[in-house]
Amino acid sequence: MSSGLLFACVGALLFAMGMAGVMLIAHLLRRILAFNVMGSGAFLILVGLTQRNDVPDPVPQAMVLTGIVVAVAATALALALVRRLHALTGQLELPADDT
């Protein structure tokens, strides 16, 4: 197994862990962290899988670079929304569904 493939497999595990976290964790800060773990997994898959004979492919690398910056912006936006929610309701969890 090449190192690139190993990275991709670890990425798959991280993605699954993050996904479970996003669905299970009620605390919003931890949920945002889980979402970031999920994103990191996707990035690892993209970069690792496209390495052949340990020579990287520049196109997925550029995509991941773009993705990282967008993920930072999305995280900051999520944090701003969480802070707003905390200011309005004093809670760090989403209100339960009425249904």
């Binding site: 493939l5 991709a8 993605f15 699954a16 899988l49 052949r52 492919d57 520049p58 196109v59």
Partner: peptide, 26 residues
Amino acid sequence: ALAFAALLIGALLEPLPVSVDLRAAV
């Protein structure tokens, strides 16, 4: 989640088709 990860890794272990390689184009 564990089953999903196993499925994903199984799919990753399949070799990529050569047409996905963009290094030559770059």
